[in-house]
Nucleic acid binder design. Structure first.
Lengths: 213, 213
DNA sequence: TTATGAAGTAACTAGTTAGTGCGTTAATCG
DNA sequence: CGATTAACGCACTAACTAGTTACTTCATAA
C-alpha cells in the first residue's frame, strides 16, 4: 500500500467538504431562498462551477446540508449513552444536551426552520433521515419504559409528545430570541438568562414525567 | 394565486387593506426574502405602484404586516378576560387559546420565523409592539399572582419563562410539522393528533404551575 | 362646470441570480 | 513517457426582481 499521501493541489473530497461547510453557514444565515450560490462558492474558496459539479444544484446542496445537520445531532444524542444512567439522571441529561446542542449549533435551528417553510420538500427525498430518526425515538422510548419499570416515571407518557416538548422548550426560546427580546424586554442571551432557562426547562420536564419531582 | 375581486370604484382604504392582506399571505408563504412584490400586487388586485405609494417599499410593507399580526394576537388575548375565571381555569384557557390561535392563524408563526431570521430588524423599529407586549406580559403576571394568593399555584414562577413555555409547546409542534411528520413518522395534523397534543400541553403547564395538578 | 390632486396603470431600468459552455491544468496509470 | 480522466476556472446568459418614470382616470370641492 502507499505511505504518507502527498499534500495535493487538487483534493476533491476537501473541496466538497469546504463547499458543504460554507453552504451550511450561508443557508443558516439567509435560508434556502436568501442564500446566494456565489456567496457559498466564495466562502468555500471554491469556484461556483464546483458546486454544480459536486452537488448538482442549489437545492441538492441544501438537501446535503440538511442531511448532515440531522445525522450530526442524532449521532451526538446516541453518544450520550443514556442506558448507563438512572432514569431521572438520563432524562435530565437529555434535556440539558438538547438545550446545549441548539445553543452551540444555532445553524441547525435555522436550517430546520427553512426546511419547514418549504414543507420538508428536501427531507422527504432523503433515505438516511428515517433511519437515524427511528433510532432516536426508540432511545427515548427505552428510557421512558425503564423509568416506569423502576417506579420513578409516570406510566402512559407518549415518547413522541415528550420528545417534541423537550425540543420545543429549548428551540422556541432560541429561534425567537430576537423578537422575544423585544416582546419580553429582556436580553434573553445573557449568561444568567440562559442558565435560568435551562433550569426552568429541566424543572418543566421533571414535573411532567416523574412521579415525585 | 387567488385574487380578490376588485371594487368598481376607487377606494384608497380598501386598496390598502387588500395589499396588506395579500402581503400577509405571500410573506407567510415564502418569507420576506422569498415573497415577490409582483405576486403581492397581483394577489391584491392592485398595481405594484400602489404598494410603493401606500407602504414605501417591500420591507416597510413587511413591517406593517408584522405589526398587524402582533396586535391581532395581543388583542385576542386581552379579550379572553382571564380575570373573570378562577386561576386554574384561566391558565387552561390561556394554553388552549394559544394553541388554537396558532392553529387557526398559521401565517403568524411563519411571519415571526421570518422576522427572527432577520434578527427582528423590523420589530425593533415599531412603536406599537412594546405597548401591546407589556399589556400581555402583565396579564399573565396578574394571573400568576392571583393563583399564588389563592394557594393553587406554586410561588416563584417567572411570568416570562411561563409565557415562553406556553408558546413554545404549541408553536414548535406546528411550525415544525413538516419535518416532524418525517422524524416521528406520524401525521401530526390529524384530528386526533391535534387533540392529543393540546391535552398534553395543558397537562404539561398544569403540572408546572399548580400545587396539586 | 371645471380645476385639482389623489388613485391607478403600463412599461421600463438597473441590478441580480442560478445555472452553463468550454477551455485549461493537474493527477493517475499503462 | 503519453494518454486518459477528473478537478478546476473564466466568462457568459436567460430569466428574474425591486423599484421608478411618465402618464391617465376619476371624485369632488369651489
Amino acid at each position: 500500500m502507499q505511505t504518507t499521501p502527498k499534500p495535493k493541489q487538487r483534493d476533491a473530497e476537501a473541496t466538497r467538504k469546504r463547499i458543504l461547510a460554507a453552504a451550511k453557514k450561508e443557508f443558516a444565515k439567509s435560508g434556502l431562498g436568501g442564500a446566494r450560490v456565489d456567496d457559498i462558492a466564495e466562502r468555500a474558496n471554491a469556484n461556483k462551477r464546483m458546486i454544480y459539479h459536486y452537488f448538482g444544484g442549489k437545492e441538492d446542496l441544501f438537501q446535503a446540508v440538511l442531511e448532515e445537520a440531522y445525522t450530526d445531532i442524532r449521532t451526538a444524542e446516541q453518544k450520550l449513552d443514556l442506558d448507563r444512567l438512572p432514569p431521572r439522571e438520563a432524562l435530565e441529561t437529555l434535556v440539558r444536551f438538547t438545550w446545549d446542542y441548539y445553543l452551540k449549533n444555532p445553524e441547525f435551528i435555522t436550517l430546520v426552520n427553512s426546511e419547514n417553510l418549504h414543507r420538508a420538500k428536501h427531507l422527504k427525498k432523503s433515505e438516511v433521515i428515517p433511519v437515524v430518526s427511528r433510532r432516536f425515538v426508540s432511545m427515548v422510548k427505552t428510557l421512558l419504559d425503564r423509568g416506569v419499570a423502576e417506579g420513578v416515571f409516570r406510566p402512559g407518557i407518549d415518547e413522541t409528545q415528550l420528545n417534541i416538548t423537550i425540543a420545543a422548550i429549548g428551540y422556541y426560546y432560541l429561534t425567537n430570541r430576537y423578537t422575544g427580546a423585544i416582546v419580553y424586554d429582556r436580553d434573553l442571551m445573557a449568561k444568567d438568562a440562559l442558565e435560568q432557562r435551562v433550569d426552568f426547562n429541566i424543572d418543566t420536564v421533571m414535573r411532567l414525567v416523574c412521579l415525585e419531582p
